[in-house]
Design a protein around this nucleic acid. Structure first.
Lengths: 136, 136
DNA sequence: CAGGTTATCGCAAGTTGTCGCAATAGTGAC
DNA sequence: GTCACTATTGCGACAACTTGCGATAACCTG
């Protein structure tokens, strides 16, 4: 079943705009911003409003095709839901972002579940700090 | 040495506006938003511009008096730097926020340091997930 | 405590993201 | 294909910050 069919099977529609947002996410490796996607889409289709891009990202998240993460700034980062899940280390100083295997975070996940009854979504939780290169 | 003196010793100035922002942070227990502080300050001193509040929060952070954390939304949360440090669990569903002792997070901190050379600032890293009450 | 330096302020304009609404256009049914 | 239904769009207005700039007022110095 194609993505379009999946979308339709949930009572939603596959529009040109939605297709373009999905394509842009496909091209971007990970963690694009909505603004970047809007820029790409609008470079070829200037009549498409940025608000449409924002709304499509939300809609596609509701449908399970994309997810978002908040790194250490106010900007929401988006990526396809089917890429391998991983944790995020964000450097406060240089802003670089590093991915780490979820395996590293799992012990904490188990502990939070056991002690607090909290089901942590560690693939969407950015850990801030100072990276190796920036360490004094 | 008073806060004012500390500020002056770093070549900065203690202005009325800065004092008011510090006071508002003092009153708020934790994790206020800039908007909330601006509202408080402006309720008594309407001539103070919101941009002044934003800039003072940044300046005070640079001076080490306050810090900020990004919970799971786009809003920056501010609090005094001298409150007891703790980690944050944020529920994706109900938005509630729970504090946990840093001790719980320390094993992960040590591991990231050893394996990645990354110095995690776990008191400013929010972990998102589903809280006990919202769990299915 | 007067004067010069310059951090900080208030204002206005610019960004970035959100929302209500009327018009449009995918979809399934016939 | 055609039609009715309604999800989605573009637009304009708004909300939440951010930034540039000339004016102001802390602060240090003598």
């Amino acid at each position: 079943m194609s993505v379009a069919d999946e979308i339709r099977s949930k009572g939603k529609r596959m529009t040109v705009q939605r297709r373009l947002v999905l394509d842009a996410l496909q091209r971007a490796r990970h963690h694009t911003t909505a603004e970047e996607i809007a820029r790409q889409v609008r470079s070829r289709h200037p009549q498409i409003d940025p608000s449409t891009v924002y709304r499509n990202l939300e809609a596609l998240e509701g449908l399970g095709f994309v997810t978002h993460t908040h790194l250490d700034d106010r900007v929401t980062r988006w990526h396809r839901a089917d890429v391998e899940r991983h944790g995020h280390l964000v450097c406060r100083r240089c802003g670089s972002e590093q991915e780490i295997p979820l395996r590293t975070l799992e012990p904490l996940g188990r502990r939070l579940r056991a002690e607090q009854g909290f089901r942590a979504d560690l693939a969407h939780s950015a850990i801030v700090g100072i990276c190796r290169e920036c360490a004094p």
